[in-house]
Design a protein around this nucleic acid. Sequence first.
DNA 1: ATATCGATTATCT
DNA 2: GATAATCGATATG
Length: 214
Amino acid sequence: MKVSREFDLRKLVPLNADFYVRDPRCVACDLLGKVVVRHLGRERMAGRIVEVEAYLGAGDAAAHAAAGLTPRNRVLFGPPGRSYVYFIYGNYYCLNVSCLPDGVAGGVLFRALEPLTGLRAMAQNRGLTGELTERSKRLLTTGPGRLCQAMRITRARDNDLDMTSLESGIWIGDDGYRVPRIVATRRIGISKAADHPLRYIVAGNQFVSGPKPK
DNA sequence: ATATCGATTATCT
DNA sequence: GATAATCGATATG
């Protein structure tokens, strides 16, 4: 998949809030192939979305929103297209985007990106030294904790940002790229409601988490 | 290649 | 006090 050569940040059009006012399952599928852009001062990083998970509202026992509104998860209940960043396992952050209209909970977790620009900075943020090989590129943004570390996304600074705005530091754009094929599987790392196929991956993409396919 | 396990802390019960 | 939308290191086939 040689998208990086063709990638042009200037051709990226931000997704508007209406995009996110839908069932998280639809939003999740349609986010595959879109691009996450991170601005940090002069630093610019971007990666194509290749793996996501949908989290629903009260009916989804695995969703943070299932227990009702709390200070932590309030963004999920708020307006669409905003960043929900949470801290997990004492070490890592995970990035989500809120879905559905204000007052209705739902979100999509970003699980893996194919790095496009700013790979050097990402490697530095991840503490990786040495040459970037095809192998080590997979360690940059493959996995929800990794992609947050690579892009220096933290809850204190980056929770509840408007991801439809170029000004916010994290936004999502469409450059017209369309993914070849989508596969749905069970979600990773959950114990409740684990049997629903709400994880969506770009079939055959090397940057999807888990054992390397062939 | 797959399996197991420790790290480390915010959040909720 | 228990758990977690994880990762990386280590061990073993």
